Amino acid sequence: MTTQHLQNRVDPWGQLRTVASRGTRMGNRGILHNDANQVVRPWKHKRWVTCMLEFKQIKRPKPFSRGNYSELFFLDEATAFAAGHRPCGDCQKARHLDFKEKWLAANVDAQLRSAISMDDVDKVLHAERCVPGGGKTTFAATLGELPKGTMFEFAEAAFLVSAAGYLPWSFDGYGPAKRIDGATAVTVLTPASIVRAFEQGFVALVHASAGLDDPAAVASAQKNPS
């Protein structure tokens, strides 16, 4: 019997796709589906988060259950950041706080940081990641200036800047590094303020195929829920 996959796998452009590969992170943008489990909106709120697949043995309902938020899935955290998501404050509290600290240090004057809430951060991220109707907000940069963890578009494909080089992205993992001149102008997919947080020292977790294992990646990479 053929498994019916949902339109809930997220690519680095933030688009929702219908593919079998699950990935290693889950995400939330609110309730995006209707009673027929069809996606009818690209987001419901501005608190786009990325979550652990499992947390404190909590049993989540079947994805796209009636009245529940639409569970989204990412290859890894770097992909989630490129799409404009940030760590959840519930299942990843320490990581959430570390991200906020680095993000504020990179983007907000020191005397103003104590007054900035995560809602304020989410408003900035929302303006940086998408346009009305669901399109992707991007910016141009010179490749060699981008920090590790950043994702960019080149030759109509997505790539990760990593310690192993420029790695082509897919729903199943990263391919071998490609040689691209560092002086090349590229389209950056990761929101600008998150790129600055990477420059401040925040490190995005990446899929095991990148050669720098995310501890959550290996055990769950082959599971394919609806």
Rank of each mutant, 00 (worst) to 15 (best):
C88T: 05
G89A: 02
G89I: 04
G89D: 01
D90E: 08
D90V: 14
C91L: 04
K93V: 08
K93Y: 10
A94H: 06
R95C: 00
H96E: 00
H96Q: 03
L97F: 03
D98Y: 00
D98E: 13
F99Q: 02
F99K: 08
F99T: 09
E101T: 14
W103R: 02
W103N: 07
W103Y: 09
L104V: 11
A105L: 11
A106W: 02
A106K: 08
N107A: 06
N107K: 08
D109F: 01
A110P: 00
Q111G: 09
Q111N: 13
Q111E: 15
Q111L: 09
L112T: 02
L112F: 09
L112G: 00
L112Q: 14
L112N: 13
L112P: 00
R113G: 05
S114V: 04
A115Q: 13
I116L: 11
S117D: 05
S117H: 03
M118T: 09
D120R: 07
V121K: 06
D122W: 02
D122I: 01
V124H: 01
V124E: 10
L125P: 08
H126Y: 11
A127S: 13
A127R: 13
C130N: 02
V131H: 11
V131Q: 11
V131S: 12
G133F: 02
G134V: 11
G134A: 09
K136E: 01
K136L: 08
K136Y: 01
T137Q: 15
T137K: 15
T137P: 00
T137F: 01
F139R: 13
A140C: 02
A141Q: 08
T142V: 15
T142G: 04
E145C: 02
L146V: 10
L146P: 08
L146F: 11
P147N: 06
G149L: 10
G149R: 09
G149C: 11
T150Y: 04
M151E: 12
M151Y: 07
M151P: 10
M151L: 15
M151A: 07
F152R: 09
F152N: 08
E153K: 11
E153M: 08
F154W: 15
E156C: 01
A157Q: 15
A157L: 12
A157R: 15
A158C: 06
S162Y: 05
A163D: 14
A163C: 01
A164Q: 15
A164K: 15
A164D: 11
Y166T: 03
Y166A: 07
L167I: 05
L167H: 02
P168K: 05
W169N: 03
W169D: 02
W169H: 06
W169M: 04
F171M: 12
F171V: 06
G173A: 08
G175I: 04
G175A: 06
A177Q: 06
K178F: 01
K178Q: 14
K178H: 09
R179M: 07
D181P: 09
G182N: 14
G182D: 13
G182H: 07
G182P: 10
A183M: 04
A183E: 13
A183N: 14
A185I: 05
A185M: 12
